[in-house]
Design a protein around this nucleic acid. Structure first.
Lengths: 202, 202, 202, 202
DNA sequence: TATGAATGAGACTTCATTCAT
DNA sequence: TATGAATGAAGTCTCATTCAT
């Protein structure tokens, strides 16, 4: 089925709106009406593009997961551990800045028990994570980094970088800033990178 | 209004169940039915104790916030930075292990825009945070820790320690373990403490 | 079953409260809770005295109907038409002043289709009304009053006298007065009596 | 918002049904189900046209009030007192015959304390009433009618004419007739007009 | 006599989804 | 492609009534 220009535009509008709504209220807490309104569409028209609420959610989740996985894959293959980790942390921070709603959508899905995501995610992410941890295990053996369990390094990096998106409101309440503020972004990125690197490297 | 024994018991049952349900599905995504079923009660009977869904949510949130704030206040006043930070990180990890649902409830509320929490939270937490950051600023000036922005240190500690509760499913998918597993808990705690301390201390 | 002192007191309290509530909201629109609260009693305790909501309503209605019928029976048997009618109108006005809620309760029941009242009322009132109209027919024949259909005279008297109770709020909105104000009561009574008498008498 | 043909039809159906139900049971005693059933509609479909029960009630009340006010405004400006009053009484009687449910709806609202109506009514009716009473005061001064308080004349006319609608059931129980019966209507109208006019005019 | 606790029935309302145009 | 109209299912909440004490 060929997709006309307007189809593509409308589908994007829907997915963008859906990302925002679902990321705030989760799957069950969101309504098609909210999404339709945000996309400036009638509800039946929206359902013309995606048959059911679940379909929209799955499409949104798939798109988000791809972006998220892309940020995981931004793992440089060559270079020193310092270079590779710095690059990785920076990419994750940029992801949080550029797609905060995507990060929250992801968090929401995981907290609901990841009923949709789990199978997709397990398949697609395990390999990447395994690859990364095995690289780090090599670094440990080579004495390039401290004797740490790599999976916790991964979790720490994810946790810290995603925190600024997931808890954006709290960050804002306490600092008056968000990652959209370039100076604040730089400051956060520098502090995080500094601590993690000197905590991990020997 | 006197509270009979059975009232106290039932209210606890309700709040416990509600914490679990709300922490999974957020306010809008949760139903009273789910909570009542988990508390092994009829829906009208549950509503006999808390007039509305919002009332339950507020009660749960208040209780959770108090636990959360208590973990914040576990900031030792005397000792070296190393002792104080170690103690703080450990307490936060224990909080994540002991009350994972509470942590997720909190995350959910924040991601929904913290419509209920915000005012309470702002008032009650700002002072504690300010106190902690000003202590750390003293450490920076005294040359005891690196020249970092204390608020990001706080955020990092929160992010990492809460991650194991908030993303419990993901952690489980990738490791087959959760903080309930004592060995895994120790391992995570050690790795996190190691990285953060050597990343922060001079 | 002997009735203790407290039983009598409580039943009166309940009936009084019920009269007020039912007269405002009708049978279906009233709740036992409202009545219990007004009577300063717990709901189960109230139901100890009257098994069901309908029982309360019937008791209230019966009591009210008796008062209402009593005002009908205040039809003097001897005297000129002028004396008899004056006396009757005055008694009806006093009823509206003394029991405005009873009048409204009665109106409400009638407007709901009089599901409870109808049979009782039909039996008990028809005779009185017939008696009165036949007396008036005698007056017509004797040339003492104008050639009118007596039943409409009855209706007019009822309508006008009850109006000040049933539409009390409206009367108050437009005049700032109610029948509880003695001057206003006298004024209304005089005007009404004047018009009706000189309209009816030859 | 454009209103399609079917919208107009359905809204009328709803308002007509709602008038009947609300006029019988009052606001709280009526259910949307009853109205929907009478309008031959599903409940959610009815709520598609009026978002809430209160909305329906307000719409119905507003429409009714307008009809009621219109009957008030049918006060001829020119003519003798006899002509003007006769015309006014006749119009009010026709209103009771043509819209008995509207009259009862109005009575119900007033007896509930007129929570919705009061402000609207006060504003819109006071002027008309004032105008009419001042005209009558002129008549008194000119010696055209008896020395009466005009507001009571107004109340009497309202009371008597509305009685046949508000107490329709009672009237039927005692006479076997209602205003829908043309002969009975004429008889009532004549008797009422006769009594009131000869009671008021000099 | 009094009341805390419990519940089934039912009321208002929302919402995903379908139908017709 | 778009939308007004319609609905069954489900969710929140109320209420008459009962039970246990």
């Amino acid at each position: 089925m060929k997709r006309t220009r307007i189809q593509v535009i409308n589908q994007q509008k829907i997915l963008d709106s859906a990302t925002h709504i679902f990321s705030k209220y989760g799957f069950r807490g969101s309504t098609i009406d909210q999404i339709a309104q945000m996309a400036d569409m009638s509800k039946p028209n929206l359902l013309y593009y995606f048959k059911t609420k679940k379909n929209i959610y799955q499409a949104v989740l798939k798109r988000t997961l791809n972006i998220w996985l892309r940020s995981l894959k931004e793992w440089k293959v060559t270079g020193t551990p310092k270079e590779i980790l710095t690059h990785y942390i920076h990419r994750k921070m940029e992801f949080s800045r550029d797609y905060p709603a995507a990060s929250r959508l992801f968090a929401n899905e995981v907290m609901e028990g990841a009923p949709i995501l789990n199978s997709l995610f397990a398949e697609e992410s395990r390999d990447i994570v395994l690859e990364n941890t095995s690289i780090m295990k090599g670094w440990v053996k080579a004495g390039l980094i401290k004797n740490l369990e790599p999976i916790h390094i991964i979790f720490m990096i994810w946790a810290v970088t995603q925190h600024y998106a997931d808890y954006e409101i709290q960050v804002f309440t306490l600092t008056g800033k968000s990652l959209a503020d370039e100076d604040f972004f730089k400051q956060a990125q520098n502090n995080i990178t500094e601590i993690l690197l000197s905590g991990i490297l020997k």
